[in-house]
């Protein structure tokens, strides 16, 4: 069933789609790497970010790419407040409580969106929504090419931030040794909230880059949450470059799996990789053994 003439465009498409997935997974991997929590509200927060992009466009005519100046900071603030005000207080030292509270938050956020915005599918129409660039005979939609660049830049920026700035070093210290970090005078709760905020802020970037080629509904996050987890595991929990590479690998696997097995059954490739990685290399492609 594999047609060689479409293999190249399919792979190229997988790479760009995968980079978009990676962008969504970057925040998740940061949150997991530092706070060691599985954030089930990640999909719902992506949805919130997409709605902000949409309303900025609809009400103020702000192009999605210009929203990059607004949406990530807003999402950062939202993330910081959520961690400081709700999630951080709910743990009481028990993992299951974090699980429950992020689950509860996602239910609240999604249904609030349903109440306020109704479940209509919303899209933004941009001049470049339908344009493509040709790469060696394959058409890449412009929004996806932009998203690819955005993902690479964001991953590199996060990596540089973590290794070059004081806050980044503090975050890494807390991630490794919480008690020790507290002893040397790091405000752990603040660092946690900053990490969560940055993780959610990155979702804001993802939303600005995703919106021109996608849509938003209150349930839109569901389609991305599982694939984002897969990428986090694949790349190694807490690794940004791992997430980038993991995302691209998943994108390509999805594309080639779809060609060989059909789009429905082809999805199985993603989960097969996921399970194999978990079994044989649980630290992920670029993670370190704990």
């Amino acid at each position: 069933m594999l047609n060689p003439t479409i293999l190249w465009p399919a792979i190229l498409n997988g790479v760009t789609t995968g980079a978009l997935y990676a962008l969504i997974a970057l925040g998740l991997t940061l949150i997991y790497g530092v706070l060691h929590i599985i954030n089930f509200a990640h999909g719902a927060l992506l949805m919130v970010a997409l709605y902000i992009v949409y309303f900025l466009f609809r009400l103020f005519g702000l192009a999605p790419y210009l929203s990059l100046a607004i949406v990530p900071p807003v999402m950062f603030a939202l993330g910081y407040a959520l961690q400081r005000g709700v999630i951080g207080r709910a743990g009481h030292g028990r993992d299951e409580n974090i699980l429950l509270v992020t689950l509860g938050l996602s239910i609240v956020i999604e249904n609030l969106a349903l109440m306020l915005f109704s479940s209509d599918t919303q899209t933004v129409e941009t001049a470049y929504g339908f344009s493509t660039v040709s790469v060696l005979g394959a058409f890449i939609p412009v929004p996806k090419a932009v998203a690819f660049v955005g993902a690479v830049v964001t991953a590199l920026a996060l990596w540089a931030f973590m290794s070059r700035t004081d806050l980044g070093r503090a975050i890494r210290a807390v991630a490794k040794e919480r008690k020790g970090a507290r002893l040397v005078g790091i405000d752990v709760d603040h660092v946690y909230a900053m990490s969560f905020g940055i993780g959610v802020g990155v979702l804001g970037i993802a939303a600005c880059l995703l919106m021109p080629s996608y849509y938003v509904t209150p349930q839109v996050g569901h389609g991305f949450i599982l694939i984002a987890f897969t990428i986090v595991v694949l790349g190694g929990m807490g690794s940004f470059l791992g997430a980038l590479i993991g995302g691209i690998v998943i994108g390509v696997v999805e594309a080639v799996g779809g060609l060989m097995l059909g789009e429905s059954l082809g999805q199985i490739g993603i989960f097969a990789i996921f399970i194999l990685i978990l079994l044989f290399r649980p630290q992920g492609l670029l993670g370190h053994r704990a």
Binding site: A90, G104, L105, I107, V108, L112
Partner: peptide, 12 residues
Amino acid sequence: GANMVIYGTVLV
């Protein structure tokens, strides 16, 4: 959606 918002809030 209103009922699910209450449900989720009480959960939290």
